[in-house]
Amino acid sequence: MKFNQIGMGQFFRASSVLIILGLLVEIVSLLWFHPLSFVLFAFLGAILIGLGMVVYLASLVFAAIPISGNRE
């Protein structure tokens, strides 16, 4: 499957899953009072959230637009 044949819905799902996982990791890092909590936040949580944002932004550029899409 080519990159520009992936539908918007699949991009959104991937993006949403990554962001939700990242945010859950961030909550754990906020509530865990330990020197490793920052490492957890910066090297796992923020990267997952950032990846999710990148996937969403990529969807705006590369996602295949369905024929029945909202075109006026």
């Binding site: 959104f12 993006s15 949403s16 962001i19 990242g22 945010l23 961030e26 890092s29 906020l30 936040f41 910066a42 949580g45 923020a46 959230i49 950032g50 999710g52 944002m53 969403y56 932004l57």
Partner: peptide, 14 residues
């Protein structure tokens, strides 16, 4: 939801 708020969460978390 997928761009502005997560960016805000990262900034505030940092």
């Amino acid at each position: 939801a997928l761009c502005v708020l997560p960016a805000l969460c990262i900034a505030m978390g940092m």
